[in-house]
Design a protein around this nucleic acid. Sequence first.
DNA 1: CGAGCCGTTGAGGGGATTCAAGCTCAGTGG
DNA 2: CCACTGAGCTTGAATCCCCTCAACGGCTCG
Lengths: 243, 243
Amino acid sequence: MKVIDAPLRQAGAVIAQSCADCPVRSEALFGVLGSGTVERAGEGVESVRLLPGQRVYAQGFIGGSLFTVREGIVRFERVTEAGDRRIVRLAGRGGLIGQEALLHQGYADEAVACTEVQVCRIPKAVVERLAVREPTLHRELMRRWQSSLEAAEEWTAELTSGTTRRRVLQLVARLAELAGPSDCIWLPPRHEMGVMLDMAFETASRVIGQLRRERILETYFPAGARVDRALLAQALHRENNRM
Amino acid sequence: MKVIDAPLRQAGAVIAQSCADCPVRSEALFGVLGSGTVERAGEGVESVRLLPGQRVYAQGFIGGSLFTVREGIVRFERVTEAGDRRIVRLAGRGGLIGQEALLHQGYADEAVACTEVQVCRIPKAVVERLAVREPTLHRELMRRWQSSLEAAEEWTAELTSGTTRRRVLQLVARLAELAGPSDCIWLPPRHEMGVMLDMAFETASRVIGQLRRERILETYFPAGARVDRALLAQALHRENNRM
DNA sequence: CGAGCCGTTGAGGGGATTCAAGCTCAGTGG
DNA sequence: CCACTGAGCTTGAATCCCCTCAACGGCTCG
């Protein structure tokens, strides 16, 4: 409790707001429930704001809560046997994270805010209570688990193989998706990029520099960029078809 | 338990056997059910034998069945945007695969037998029917989903980073776990190793050759090896602490 | 017996890492 | 106000790990 709440409380204000008119409700876990049910469900749920770098939860902690991402990007990281950090996937708006809390298990990995993030903290008990009456919730939970699984597998397939250029392009493409329709995306510090893509941060910097020279990216301080989606798609396509 | 499957039929003999006295029952999905329930559950389930290289199911296929692995090793592979195969995780004895069938979705990736494999084909309807009466089954399904997720993330963390030597050692260690207590393990053809670890097959061959010279492995034809677990653990430990 | 597949090994080249230096920018304190 | 510091980004040069290309041997099978 302390481990989770302590960093969160100082992080930002808890916004009292009804789940029923949540802007991400349709994309979120409770999107499958009726309005009345959501109203009851909302009791016990709290909205939390996190700054970049702050943890949503710690690996191994038996937390009792799962979270819906309302805004921002969250990364999942673990420490390898070799002792270095490795990022295994990302979650964005509408994503459900920390589901394993429902199983009385410790969290499988560390969840950390990449950007400024807003999450809804949903105590395990709330879900358990609802699930008895609402069979659709079970199905929705399974669906969420499956999409987490697919996200993890896709990360392996697309972001861990090929040249450094290909991997960086893939990452940027994914970040552009997470950013929604806007062309302004969050671009990680080079060191984080290295941890995500398993390359030296200097290499990440070189590739980004190259993309900038090709007008695919225009980087801003401290961690943003504007992407030319057409050029990006084109570069990715070229990269994928030669080799 | 019944006896047939169209695409799988040619693969091998179907063994008529009761689910209640299945040797892997305690590790399998229905391990959480009582004996009487298992007996009823078994109707509609069929056991299938597959040879190395044969598919359990195809990516995208809307199958209507999930599977429990009774024996052998199954790999999950997908085709990347760049057009090459990539293996994203393995499943062994007791593992549940193809769960996404429960969600009316196509299978997320291709499941292929690595070794000779025995699986139990469980029609979606069987699980759905049981789940109504048996709330523990829901929990067990979620638990399975979570372990698939963790297997995928661990694959990313441990098998896609570091030197080729470290990756091969990690793979061998995992194969040794899947092999159970025996020191004789399945060792993939070098080309498969390359697809698993994202390296050229010649490189895989070189590393295996090195391990053989270090007496960590003794390879057999066509796809087996005897491992010295002590030396393997030692080599891994050394590898993980320098760098 | 030749064809084909798989595994091994060598030589050479290239892409990524490593080691370094120089840069900008924020924050700090004289 | 400005020197100082440290963190993050960039770029260069040298090294090395791994890939590519190639040749060869063992085995299976038609």
